[in-house]
Design a protein around this nucleic acid. Structure first.
Length: 681
DNA sequence: TAGAAGCAGATTTTT
DNA sequence: TCTGCTTCTA
């Protein structure tokens, strides 16, 4: 027990020992949130509560596995059964595996991701933007609206169209036994709602429920939690209203703001001691967030020294910004800073380009966090499609993806014919290809016919060999279809081939680690995995502010602090959420924070003139400790220093493309030098 | 059928 | 500016 209380402050202890009833733990940035949750889990178990009756829900796999590890270490690995700690979606998946039949569907469903969802919608041929339709459908599902409901409420023609697409989409999912991410929450809710006995049993099974990042829950997750805690009301939620940054995705900040009213006798514990940042950084963060009205209200208190001033840089354009920041980062590394301790954040991904160029030019190695994710890469999705077909050949969606990949001479014309024919026979593509061979032969070319026959035979062979041994599947797959070989022959394929090898490795590991599991288990497992962060210790990190949540860095740069970019202004701008985003960004910094803005930026093909972000003055840095970066502006007569030529005097300033060119006199010799290669002295 | 050229569209995205 | 998709041509 002492081990659990070691290193906990008063407020944290208070949160840990409160076992029964509803509790809201307001955990400010850097206030030891994970430590508190894991300590609480350990405390419950030490007090005799069976691990199997504890459920901890998170938003990411990473958070779940970190908690699992830390809770286990607190318990000295004494318990044999680890409580269920997983994402909302994983919980939904486990639930559906047991109870899908209550909806009249088989539990052999396949999970599709957002990209798959968009492909399906696109196949319905519509003039509406796919992303918009996908979003609307997601909204419907999270509001528990059926296609019929959507149709009823639709007034404008476009909404009727969307409702119609929604209906088609749902039908497609049911026919192919697919579930999307939203279904993983919506279907369990539906089942619990329709089966009160099961609902009671489930709630009784999970007597103690904890939720991490509660400010990011949406209405459906809230309702699901109500069902799960209906029998006992033992619900402990942890979050920070000031870090709610997923409102645009349906997260409802009201969940956390109104928690105390929605559950009876809620105890509120505030964790406001910050163990991460210097006082200067905290002061800026507190000042900024104080401009928001919609909040529960709390100030972070520091535990560290005052620290150095926040630096504010202003540049002429994004190229300058990139050069100067790259130079500064290089300097930090030269002075012995571990690159892992440095990060650069931006509000929108489009800003990464100029920065990447600058870093490349300066030779600073970087890794982009949350760019294109491993499982979203085309080559990986191809492999997954093959595996899905082997698992279930009636998966039309996957067949369509790889029927001509690697190229086997089946063009659009042939594929259209097959789609049409399988539609006429009201069966899956594979069933059509294998059972209506005469019909097929009459419709497509001889060459295509042979290719298709061979394709189906190969699938069948792989299915048979897989039922004998899952382990050899990868080798057989590669021997039969040569996907790796196909990609290897393509230009610039190094990275793709590496990814394929990694995927093959992951599959083999899975088979070894879970010998009792089959191909289906593997497929479901990876559907819920996001990026496996392979950390390259020699690189700095660059990422969107959203991607930085939960992380911390000694030296932090935030770029693009201009009105229009950050806060990002568009339709549906929620200025308070933008400000919270600013708060999240600032509170990632431990020791040194640099905020940067630019007077103009190239964006969507145009150069836009920009003014400084209101956030700069709101967090107090633009008034008091403003520092102007002197290296951005030059005048005739300035003294400058060059790495090789030494000290010289500027004779003339001119602008070439987007850069300043200087004529400099170095001890009698005049040279033309780009401004970014010298420093003002 | 498969590459080349031409054209629209372009926030943030834990699952 | 850059990407990804449709249309055009060998």
């Amino acid at each position: 027990m002492e081990k659990i209380f070691e290193n906990l402050n008063q407020a944290q202890k208070e949160a840990v020992v409160q076992i029964d009833g509803s509790i809201l733990i307001l955990a400010g940035a850097g206030s030891g949130k994970t430590k508190t949750i894991t300590s609480r889990v350990a405390y419950l178990i030490k007090n005799g509560i069976p691990p199997s009756s504890i459920l901890t829900l998170t938003f990411t796999n990473k958070a779940a596995s970190e908690m699992r590890t830390r809770a286990m270490s607190l318990l000295n690995n004494e318990v044999s059964y680890i409580p269920l700690m997983c994402t909302f979606h994983k919980f939904g998946l486990l639930f559906l595996k047991f109870h899908m039949s209550l909806l009249g569907r088989a539990n052999s469903f396949v999970i599709i991701d957002t990209d798959d969802k968009k492909r399906i919608l696109k196949s319905f041929d519509t003039d509406l933007t796919i992303a918009m339709v996908a979003n609307e459908i997601s909204r419907f599902k999270n509001n528990l609206l059926t296609p019929e409901d959507a149709m009823k409420t639709a007034e404008l023609p476009n909404f009727k169209k969307i409702a119609n697409l929604y209906q088609k989409y749902e039908l497609y999912l049911a026919q192919n036994n697919l579930v999307d991410f939203d279904d993983l929450l919506a279907l369990p809710y539906k089942i619990l709602d329709q089966n009160p006995t099961l609902c009671r049993q489930t709630s009784e099974k999970y007597q103690y429920i904890m939720v991490d990042e509660y400010q990011d829950t949406n209405d459906l997750q809230f309702k699901l939690l109500q069902k799960l805690s209906s029998e006992h009301n033992n619900l402990c939620v942890v979050g920070d209203d000031d870090q709610s940054i997923y409102g645009w995705r349906g997260a409802n900040i009201k969940n956390i703001l109104d928690f105390k009213d929605q559950f009876t006798d809620t105890k509120i514990v505030k964790l406001t001691k910050n163990y991460r940042s210097t006082d200067t950084i905290l002061k800026a963060a507190n000042e900024l967030i104080e401009h928001n009205r919609n909040r529960l209200g709390k100030d972070l208190q520091g535990t560290k020294e005052e620290g150095s001033d926040i630096e504010v840089l202003h540049h002429d354009d994004e190229t300058m910004e990139a050069r100067i920041i790259a130079k500064r980062i290089q300097k930090l590394i030269d002075m012995g800073t571990d690159p892992q301790d440095i990060a650069l954040l931006y509000r929108i991904n489009a800003l990464s380009r100029s920065i990447e160029e600058g870093l490349n030019r300066a030779g600073v190695p970087y890794k982009m966090v949350g760019g294109l994710k491993f499982y979203e890469r085309a080559e990986i999705k191809d492999l997954i499609s093959y595996l899905r077909i082997i698992s279930n050949p009636n998966d039309d969606f996957s067949i369509k993806r790889i029927i001509n990949k690697p190229k086997r001479g089946l063009g659009k014309a042939t594929i259209d014919k097959i789609l049409q024919a399988s539609d006429e026979h009201t069966c899956s593509i594979y069933t059509y290809l294998t059972t209506h061979t005469e019909d097929l032969e009459s419709r497509v070319s001889k060459k295509a016919f042979i290719t298709l026959q061979e394709f189906c035979q190969n699938v069948q062979n792989l299915q048979e060999s897989t039922s004998e041994s899952t382990y050899t599947l990868i080798d057989n797959l590669e021997d039969t279809f040569g996907i790796r070989a196909y990609y290897e022959a393509l230009p610039d394929s190094m990275e793709r081939v590496t990814n394929i090898d990694e995927f093959y490795g992951l599959f083999r590991d899975f088979v070894i680690q879970y010998p009792d599991s089959g191909l289906d288990d593997f497929l479901n497992d990876i559907a819920l995995q996001s990026d496996q962060d392979q950390i390259d210790e020699r690189s700095i990190s660059i990422m969107s502010i959203h991607a930085s949540k939960g992380l911390e860095f000694e030296h932090l740069f935030v770029i693009g602090l201009e009105e229009g970019f950050f806060p990002l202004i568009g339709d549906g701008t929620d200025i308070e959420e933008e400000r919270r985003l600013g708060y999240v960004a600032i509170t990632r910094a431990k020791k040194e924070l640099t905020l940067s803005s630019s007077a103009s930026r190239y964006y969507k093909g145009k150069r836009a003139g920009l003014s400084k972000s209101r956030f700069l003055s709101e967090c107090g840095v633009n008034k008091g400790c403003l520092k102007i970066d002197r290296s951005t502006s030059y005048k005739k007569g300035n003294l400058v220093k060059h790495k090789i030529f030494g000290i010289g005097r500027v004779l003339e300033v001119s602008k070439v493309k987007r850069e300043f060119k200087l004529k400099i006199n170095f001890g009698g010799t005049t040279r033309d030098i780009l401004a970014s290669f010298v420093e003002r002295i």
